[in-house]
Design a protein around this nucleic acid. Structure first.
Length: 273
DNA sequence: CAAAGAACCTGGCGGC
DNA sequence: TGCCGCCAGGTTCTTT
């Protein structure tokens, strides 16, 4: 599912729809999604609270409530947040939670049950957020800062490093492949072998690929849909991800697929050095 | 210390 | 058509 651009899309829509509203009721048809809190406590503490705002940090969805409580949702691979209108949600076998507001609400769906739902107070929230690296699209994430971060991780391979959430928050398998294609750097390169030019291209690729993907409302190839059930359009802009065997848009050589860090990894062996 | 592999779960797809 | 193995936008733990 959802990497930074997809979560950003969902969060923007969710915030527009529920900010300032009161959560009337919560249903938990399959409450194993709850972490560190039981069903009764979750319902008791959440029902009647007002949503102050919804925002994103890395791949996390944070719903700030009155009473210093925050709901934190991680969609993992197949999680979805889907809006419904009216008084009753459509419950499916993959519905894990339902949040009812006045005449509308949303469900948390998750086919594979990897996703999680937490309720945290400020200390717990701080503990979770402090494990995340910088937000790649923030102005404070700059070129020099990125170079320094890389120098401290020089023995690692670049793709797994880009996907490490404590290094940078929000990049997953799709965008790591796309960023490295843009940067013309092979995914298994050790960081200490990167030239200054290559580091610069990776930095530019992160900013460009992620912001264009946010603009396109994310990538859908299978499960992901946004709050309104719409697919993401970045799928049509992918250069290498899921294009194994298809010609590289730059040189025509078939796109290669290998396994790296346990993940399918796509690249052009001629354009990426 | 870093990388690989397995585990968590379910369904879709290609191959035979 | 049917079964089997492999694969999937993530994370975390164990093994090498």
């Amino acid at each position: 599912m959802p990497e930074l651009p997809e979560v950003e899309t969902i969060v923007n829509q969710l915030n527009a729809k529920i900010k300032g509203k009161v959560i009337d009721r919560v249903e938990l048809p399959s409450f194993e999604v709850l972490r560190d809190v039981n069903k009764d406590v979750f319902q008791t503490l959440v029902e009647g609270k007002k949503v102050l705002r919804v925002y994103r940090r890395g791949k996390l969805i944070l719903i700030e409530l009155s009473g210093s409580l925050t709901i934190i949702i991680h969609l993992k691979l197949t999680g979805r947040i889907i809006e419904f209108k009216g008084k009753q949600a459509k419950i499916s076998p993959s519905t894990r939670a339902v949040f009812y507001f006045d005449k509308m609400g949303f469900t948390f769906e998750d086919l594979r049950k990897f996703g999680s739902l937490r309720l945290v107070e400020p200390p717990g929230k701080k503990a979770i957020l402090s494990k995340l690296g910088p937000e790649p699209l923030e102005g404070s994430f700059g070129r020099e800062m990125f170079f320094n971060m890389l120098r401290r991780q020089s023995r690692k391979k670049i793709k797994p490093l880009l996907m490490d959430q404590s290094f940078i928050a929000g990049i997953g398998n799709i965008y790591a492949d796309e960023v490295l294609y843009f940067a013309r750097v092979q995914p298994d390169r050790f960081v200490f072998t990167l030239t200054e030019e290559e580091m610069e291209r990776i930095f530019n690729g992160i900013k460009k690929v992620l912001s264009e993907a946010v603009e396109a409302k994310g990538t859908t190839f299978r499960d992901y849909v946004d709050f309104s059930g719409e697919r993401g359009n970045y799928f049509y802009k992918l250069k290498v991800y899921r294009r194994e065997g298809a010609p590289c848009y730059s040189c025509g050589l078939p796109v290669k697929k290998i396994r790296l860090g346990g993940r399918g990894t796509h690249f052009c062996s001629r354009c990426q050095k």
